[in-house]
Amino acid sequence: GEEEVSLGDLNMRLGILTRLDLGTRIYINADRSVPYGEVMAVMNRMRSEGYLKIGLVGLEDEGGAAPAGAGDVATAPPAAAAQDAAE
């Protein structure tokens, strides 16, 4: 959803929302004011719990178009990404 979750509560909320299905695709939305390191900390926390299908939601620029290369970015390790593509 669109609700904020603290890093300390992230694992519990993910477990509840995904019903512990580690194959659930999860999207992260952060505006430009959020430091890169904080976004990476969230993604690393998710990956450490076993969630490997993580995507980034691209921001729209002021003209209304998504920046080049924005959108779903796979963060799974290459072996997992290859397996996911094979399914």
Rank of each mutant, 00 (worst) to 15 (best):
E60R: 15
P35K: 07
L14R: 02
R25V: 07
G64F: 09
M40K: 15
A65T: 15
G71R: 03
D84Q: 14
L10G: 01
L7I: 08
A70C: 10
E3L: 06
G8V: 05
E4A: 10
N44P: 04
E62D: 12
L52S: 10
A76P: 02
V5C: 01
A76R: 04
G50M: 07
G63V: 10
L52G: 01
Y51T: 10
E3P: 00
G23C: 09
S33A: 07
G63D: 15
V73R: 06
D84P: 03
A41N: 14
V73H: 06
T75N: 11
I28F: 07
L7F: 05
L14G: 02
G63N: 12
P78C: 00
V39F: 04
N29M: 10
G50Y: 01
A41T: 09
N11M: 04
N29W: 13
L20A: 14
V42T: 08
D21V: 02
I28L: 15
I16C: 05
A74K: 00
G55E: 04
G71P: 01
P35R: 12
A80D: 05
V34F: 04
V39P: 00
R13M: 13
G71A: 09
Q83G: 03
I54E: 01
S33R: 08
A68C: 11
A79W: 11
A30E: 08
G58A: 13
R13Y: 09
M12R: 15
